[in-house]
Nucleic acid binder design. Structure first.
Ligand SMILES: Nc1ccn([C@H]2C[C@H](O)[C@@H](COP(=O)(O)OP(=O)(O)OP(=O)(O)O)O2)c(=O)n1
Ligand SMILES: [Mg+2]
Ligand SMILES: [Mg+2]
Length: 847
DNA sequence: ATCCTCCCCTAC
DNA sequence: TAAGGTAGGGGAGGAT
């Protein structure tokens, strides 16, 4: 066993780094200025007999044939292959091992519930010592491919796409005779051949790897019920409470069965934790077994190069090297505090612990998937932005499929771009990405999605953000995170549907969540939260709570009441038999202004008129709410004349409409009447956002200014503030309710108090919506509605119409909604056209 | 303090 | 020719 250790140390020492791409690329940059344009059609047939016997590669042939089309195109790239992505993944070894875990999950779905087993805390207690086994197949890809070729067992063999001694294809795996020559995974085949001219190259056989991996895991699961899969050829077993068995005996049995079943050898490491078990496996390789008892941990680690520790790659190794630290023994000389200062808290901890053989991780704790993505950083060459967009769409499709495959949807989308560094020439590696800047942008969606259209819209938006020359793009990736279970999501979505909302009977009891805090703060002051809707955290289920009794007059928040739209106020006033207006008269000196809160500047009223006449041709169906709308409009119009002058008189020094200053976007009236803590929030927020004339600490000044223009009701929904992502997110989280609010507004039978509460919620929610240059909240809201359309168009066209009518109605009252309506209308039209081949307007009239 | 975004690092 | 993917952990720095 000790000579095993020597071997391990030596090979670990050799294993400096082969993958030092950046330096590599820079170094060869000038050398390789060969234009990849018109590729030599001369197919190079210099493949060994072994290689030729392999299954032909149709993609290569196709793409070679296809390259006559593009004059300036590189021979083989995104430019020349219509099915590039699909084909690429079929031949990518890294894609194979990267996606293997998901296939494993599906194949052994039951093996995940081992986390909730008896294990619980037995490992957490220090007294109980555990036994971990780590199993790893020897030179897996090679072993599988030559398992029926005993004649090659002692010859140097490697797996690679190319057998050219000048090729830049990468060695995927090399057997141990080949490693004796210095051949390693990740090397270019030309370098491997230089080190070992007699190296025999085999092509990949992914099906066989999959098959052997299945056998491998069948065996492991048979011998142990606590199995943590690391990769297709590697796993941890926790055999702590595996009763009577001697772990070494168990290990031998497993190794033997693996060899008998697969014809491939595996090595095993046994130790008290995962770290040392893995270290033991390295020592055991190839085809061996190594047990590191607790008392010998120090001895094994002392001279072990730090690079041999899992978690220390070439960057950390180099950093440590500059500190004269090469071995774990040397690493132990550094204090934990010092390591944490140099490498960060967690990394410092890890270095300190691992150098002492300490590892508290437990086997089998299955963490749910946190992200799903797809990326391609090879063969990516674009001539223009359309190429890039097309490629992006393919990535979206890929990600959509994978999300679906995982039964999951993402609420956060990240786009990654590899951008050619300006200093970098043509990559050393054929069709490689070379020396690149890695860029990424992400956005959080109103609701989780796996819809390819949504992904595409988002991806394009993110892409636009980069402002990048398409020719500089060397790689792209799309990733979804903040995942939610798709079934829960869909169920939630059903629950959020307008129909189910309308049908649902009132249910008492609901869970409050952070997302509703803001609204609740308003409601709690009004006592008007007789209707509340929240999306409860776990199930996405919408719970509704209604109270039949009205709050007492004295419980109402005057400020909020005043900020309500006139028609809403009238309803509430009716509910209180007209006492509300009396209350206001008593409490407010300027109550005579109250009737004026409904006034609109003439220009806005004109816009509304235009819009309305446009709609009239479409909206033939009279409904109860139409009356209300007319009433509201008449009211608005009658009041609009006096107001126009006041608004135009420029009482607000900052309402210069040409200036997009934040203050000009704040409706002073709303500001004035918001509850105190909300107002403070907003002012704080404004202060934080690049607005010089709001930097003053004197709140009362702004308050006064606000009061002077307090009658402009239509400005209410223009209260847009800065860019607080938290609010966007919180609002987005409750946005399912937004559509319910639409529905409630639409429901003519909705009792007044509920109507007003809903509208109040909506208004207070909207008034907190941020909107800056990037219009995050605005697009968030639009995106929500578009997603909604995309989903609903499949099953429920009527709901689509309902939603559209609601939006249209709201757009007549609010400039914000007018903008939203304009933004989403094309999506409605496209959806209807796509799914029903009809014209949206006609459909509306028909209905 | 805790979160989020945009990275970098690591492993297979 | 060649198929440099995938996912989690974590850090820096800024916003809340
Ligand atoms: N840079 C790499 C590393 C690994 N692999 C693939 C091929 C390997 O066969 C397989 C398993 O990886 P291992 O690290 O276990 O390497 P091997 O099994 O090949 O060799 P060892 O005997 O060291 O485990 O993953 C790869 O394609 N490229
Ligand atoms: Mg292996
Ligand atoms: Mg392995």
């Amino acid at each position: 066993m000790s000579n095993d250790l020597e071997i391990a140390l030596r090979s670990a020492d050799d294993a400096t780094t082969y993958l030092m791409d950046d330096e590599h690329e820079v170094e060869f940059e000038e050398n390789g200025c060969n234009e990849p344009s018109h590729a030599q059609v001369s197919s190079c047939p210099a493949l060994t007999s072994v290689f030729d016997n392999s299954v032909a590669n149709p993609v290569t042939v196709d793409s070679l044939n296809a390259k006559t089309t593009e004059p300036a195109s590189r021979g083989h790239s995104t430019l020349s292959d219509a099915n590039f992505v699909e084909n690429y993944f079929k031949f990518s070894r890294l894609h194979f091992i990267g996606t293997w875990r998901n296939r494993y999950r599906k194949r052994f779905p039951n093996s995940h519930d081992c986390s909730k087993d008896k294990n619980s805390s037995h490992n957490g207690s220090v007294s109980q010592r555990s036994t971990i086994i780590h199993v790893d197949m020897d030179c897996f890809f090679v072993a599988v491919v030559i398992r029926n070729r005993p004649d090659l067992k002692d010859k140097p063999v490697a797996i690679c796409h190319s057998d050219s001694s000048r090729g830049t294809a990468e060695i995927s795996s090399a057997n141990y005779p080949a490693r004796d020559h210095g051949v390693k995974a990740g090397m270019f085949v030309r370098d491997a051949k230089a080190l070992c001219p007699e190296l025999v190259i085999f092509p990949y056989n992914f099906d066989a790897y999959e098959e052997v991996a299945d056998q491998f895991y069948d065996i492991l699961h048979k011998h142990c019920n606590k199995v943590q899969a690391v990769s297709c050829d590697e796993a941890f077993l926790d055999v702590s409470d595996s009763a009577v068995e001697d772990p070494s005996f168990l290990a031998s049995a497993i190794r033997k069965e693996i060899l008998d079943t697969t014809g491939c050898t595996a090595s095993v490491g046994i130790a008290g934790n995962m770290l040392m078990a893995r270290v033991a496996t390295r020592i055991a390789k190839p085809d061996g077994c190594c047990f590191i008892p607790l008392e010998r941990v120090d001895r094994y680690l002392h001279d072990l190069p730090v690079k041999a520790l899992p978690g220390i790659g070439h960057v950390l190794d180099e950093k440590l090297r500059t500190m004269q630290i090469r071995t774990c023994g040397q690493l132990r000389m550094i204090s934990k505090e010092s390591l944490q200062k140099d490498f960060g808290i967690k990394t410092g901890d890890m270095l300190w612990n691992f150098s002492r053989g300490i590892d508290s991780r437990m086997v089998g704790v299955i963490q749910e998937t946190k992200s799903v993505g797809a990326e391609v950083n090879w063969g990516v060459r674009f001539n223009d932005l359309n190429d890039a967009k097309d490629f992006l769409l393919k990535l979206c499709k890929e990600v959509s499929l994978r999300l679906e495959g995982c039964g999951v949807q993402g609420r956060n989308i990240t786009l990654k771009i590899k951008k050619r560094r300006s200093s970098a020439g043509e990559p050393v590696k054929f069709m490689g990405c070379g020396d690149c800047e890695n860029l990424s942008r992400s956005t959080t969606l109103p609701m989780a999605t796996d819809d390819v259209h949504v992904l595409q819209r988002i991806a394009n938006k993110l892409f636009g953000y980069f402002q990048i020359d398409a020719k500089d793009i060397r790689g792209m990736g799309l990733q979804a995170s903040k995942l939610e279970a798709a079934d829960t999501n869909r169920r939630g979505h059903e629950k959020c549907s307008i129909r189910s909302w309308l049908v649902s009977s009132g249910r008492k009891g609901f869970t409050n969540t952070d997302s509703c805090k803001l609204r609740d703060r308003v409601n709690s002051r009004t006592g008007l939260d007789s209707v509340s809707m929240v999306q409860s955290e776990g199930s996405g289920e919408v719970a509704v709570s209604r109270e039949a009794t009205l709050p007492g007059l004295d419980e109402l928040d005057i400020g909020v009441i005043e900020s309500l739209p006139p028609e809403v106020f009238r309803e509430i006033n009716d509910l209180y038999s007209g006492e509300l207006i009396n209350l206001l008269s008593k409490n407010k000196q300027n109550n005579k202004d109250f009737g004026m809160t409904s006034m609109v500047p003439q220009n806005i009223a004109d816009v509304m008129d235009e819009e309305r006449s446009a709609f009239e041709t479409l909206d033939k169906i009279p409904c109860d709410e139409e009356d209300e709308y007319v009433n509201g409009k008449a009211h608005l119009k009658s009041a609009s004349i006096g107001e126009a002058s006041s608004s135009a008189s420029g009482l607000l020094p900052t309402t210069d409409s040409l200036m997009p200053s934040s203050l000009s976007q704040v409706d002073p009236f709303v500001l004035q009447h918001l509850p105190e803590e909300l107002r403070v929030d907003i002012l704080e927020s404004l202060r934080a956002h690049r607005n010089p004339h709001l930097m003053s600490n004197d709140v009362s000044v702004k308050y006064d200014v606000a009061q002077t223009a307090s009658e402009d009701f239509m400005m209410k929904n223009e209260l847009w503030i800065g860019n607080p992502p938290k609010w966007v997110d919180n609002f987005a989280r409750s946005s399912c309710s937004l559509l319910n609010i639409f529905a409630e507004l639409h429901n003519s039978s909705c009792p007044g108090s509920q109507f007003s509460s809903l509208l109040q919620s909506l208004v207070s929610g909207l008034s907190l919506l941020p909107s800056d240059g990037q219009d995050d909240a605005f697009s968030s809201l639009c995106e929500l509605i578009k997603q909604y359309v995309d989903v609903k168009i499949e099953t429920d066209i009527e709901e689509i119409y309902t939603c559209l009518r609601l939006l249209r109605r709201l757009s007549l009252r609010s400039k914000l909604f007018l903008r939203i309506y304009d933004n989403v209308l094309p999506r409605f039209q496209a959806a209807v056209c796509e799914h029903y081949g009809g014209n949206l307007n006609i459909c509306l009239m028909d209905e």
